[in-house]
């Protein structure tokens, strides 16, 4: 058997990123465990989110949650859906503690089941397992983004809702649900890392209610200050710094003619 490393430009780059991230992550985790936590800048939408949970508990109306129109089996959107499910766990804990009711709409069978598990664990941990029902997690469609958002829109229009959280992979179709929430004055928190959805979220939900790009991946660490989650944020920042340094060095190298085809290397 002839075993060898597949070392093309993309795999070498992936290996470097993976190794660097793991090193940064474990160092930051060890620091966080020793109580050295980073200072997190405030994210306005999360303050509003806590308010929404409180409003839902006071009014007796449900809080609606959508983990996005992507799915766990949808390769480009899987990471966003995973992050959204972690956020759902934290929101479920908050709703369970405050006595608010939560309903979830899923666009994928795997997401539907995972959302049910995450919510059930959160309600059980909060000491209120009886307040959770699997019937509160709705399977709307199987990876059909437009039909899914139409289902979410219909749910917002017909069910009494204290607020909606639309967090995950969305494209332009988000506007159907976002504008219905705006029209019915249902407070919403929206977030996506897709450039197709971000401007629409800002104009429909408002800039103070929108989580942009990487912020949706940072939400779990903001809601639950577990050392591992904070360490992952620190590792991201360290890696970002490394990329900024690489870009500056690359610009200098290319401008001074030290390396002529550095751009082509990265494009490959």
């Amino acid at each position: 058997m002839n075993v060898s490393l597949a070392l093309g430009p993309s795999t070498v780059f992936a290996l470097i990123v993976l190794a660097a991230f793991l090193i940064f992550f474990f160092v930051a985790w060890s620091n966080s465990e020793q109580g050295r936590s980073p200072n997190l800048r405030a994210l306005r939408p999360l303050t509003r989110l806590r308010g929404l949970i409180g409003q839902s508990a006071e009014s007796g109306r449900r809080l609606h949650y959508s983990p996005g129109s992507g799915g766990l089996n949808d390769q480009p959107g899987a990471a966003e859906t995973l992050s959204s499910l972690t956020t759902l766990g934290e929101i479920s804990r908050g709703t369970a503690r405050s006595g608010a009711s939560l309903e979830i709409s899923a666009n994928d069978t795997l997401t539907f089941l995972a959302a049910g598990d995450v919510t059930e664990v959160a309600f059980t941990e909060a000491g209120r397992p009886d307040d959770f029902s699997r019937d509160d997690v709705h399977f709307v469609t199987q990876q059909d983004r437009l039909a899914y958002i139409a289902g979410v829109e219909s749910s917002l229009a017909t069910e009494p809702t204290a607020g909606t959280v639309l967090l995950g992979r969305f494209d332009a179709e988000y506007l159907l649900a976002g504008e219905t929430a705006s029209r019915l004055a249902i407070p919403q928190i929206a977030g996506s890392s897709r450039v197709e959805a971000m401007p629409l979220m800002i104009i429909s939900a408002g800039s103070e209610e929108t989580l942009l790009g990487e912020e949706i991946y940072a939400v779990p660490a903001y809601l639950d200050h577990r050392p591992a989650l904070l360490a992952s944020l620190r590792a991201q920042d360290a890696l970002r710094l490394l990329i900024i340094v690489a870009i500056i060095l690359g610009v200098i190298a290319a401008s001074t003619g030290l390396v002529s085809d550095i751009g082509n290397y990265f494009l490959r």
Binding site: G213, E214, Y217, L233, A235, Q236, I243
Partner: peptide
Amino acid sequence: ILIGTALGAIATSLRY
């Protein structure tokens, strides 16, 4: 935004 998003996706995937 894409660079930040890619880093977030890597971090989330590796955490899982």
